[in-house]
Amino acid sequence: MLLIECPWCGPRDESEFAYGGEADISRPIDPDALSDAEWADYLFMRSNRKGENREIWNHQHGCRRWFVVERDTVSYAIRATFPMDGEGRSP
């Protein structure tokens, strides 16, 4: 079970959190300007890298804040966590 550093509450067990997928995916400002392929890319395609990833997590059974986690999907090591718009915090 991962130990995740919530930027607001500190280190907590994974069971308090919900995983939200890849970070840094912004909703297009004007969806109508996108081709079907571009929209599908936003909707479905994720990089799913082996190794370092930026993810969003929600402290669902805590402060309910979403935040960014930099996590290695091979070693499961968490390099840092960030508020959505803030500075990183190393575990």
Partner: peptide
């Protein structure tokens, strides 16, 4: 409620 919070916090702060 979680869905609403997700959009408010991540996309439209």
């Amino acid at each position: 409620l979680s869905w609403m919070e997700l959009w408010l916090q991540t996309e439209w702060p």
